[in-house]
Amino acid sequence: MGFLDVTQKLFEGFGVSCLLFILTLVFSLPLGLVISFGSMSKFKPLSWIVRTFVWIIRGTPLMLQLFVVFYVPGLLFNIQLFSGDNGRFTAALVAFVINYACYFSEIYRGGIEGIPKGQYEAAEVLGMTAVETFFTVILMQVVKRILAPISNEVITLVKDTSLARVIAVAEIFFVNEMDYLAYGIVWPLFYIAVFFLVFVGALTLFFGWCEKKLSYYRV
C-alpha cells in the first residue's frame, strides 16, 4: 500500500472524475444555450414545456436523476439503455449533462434578459441585422455578465462528479471507498482533497484570468 500505488489508483479514479467533468461541460454548455432559447421562446407552449422541465431538473436532487437515468429504464421497461462496460459512465454523463444544461440555461437566460433593451434598439437603428446584433453587441456583454455564475457552477461540478458513485461509476471517491476505506485506510481521503484543491485552484486561476481579460469594459 505504498504511496505510489495509492497515487496510481487514485489517479485512475480522478481520471474518470475529470473525464466526466470535461465531457459534461462540452455537452452541457451548448445544450444550455439551446434550452435557454427554448425557455425564452415566443412560442408559448414550447417555453412552458422547457421551463417546466428546467424546474423539475433544478428542483430535484442530481442523485435522484442519476438513479432515474440508470435504473428506471431497466426497472420499468426492461430495456438496458446503458449496458456494456461504459454503461454506468454514459448514464452518469447523461444525467450530469441534463442537470448542468438546465442550470446553465438559467444563467444564460438571466444574462441575455439582463442586457438593457437600449442595446438592442441602438443596434437596430444602426441598421444591424439580428445576427449582427447578437454577435457584435450582445454576446460579449452576456459573457461578461455570466462569467461569475458560470465559474461557480463549473467549480461545483468538479465536486459534484463524486455523486456518480451512487450508480457505481469508478470515480475517485468510489475507488477510494472500495480500495482503501474498505480496509480502514483513511489517509487517501486527505490525498483526494489535494487532488480537488489543485484542480479547483487551477480553475479559479483560469476564471480569474478570464475576468481580467474582460475587465477592460464595464457592463
Binding site: F67, Y71, L75
Partner: peptide, 11 residues
C-alpha cells in the same frame, strides 16, 4: 444498498 435496484434493472 442499491443491490435490488441493480438486480431488477438488469444492471
Amino acid at each position: 444498498p442499491n443491490k435490488y435496484m441493480e438486480l431488477n434493472s438488469g444492471a
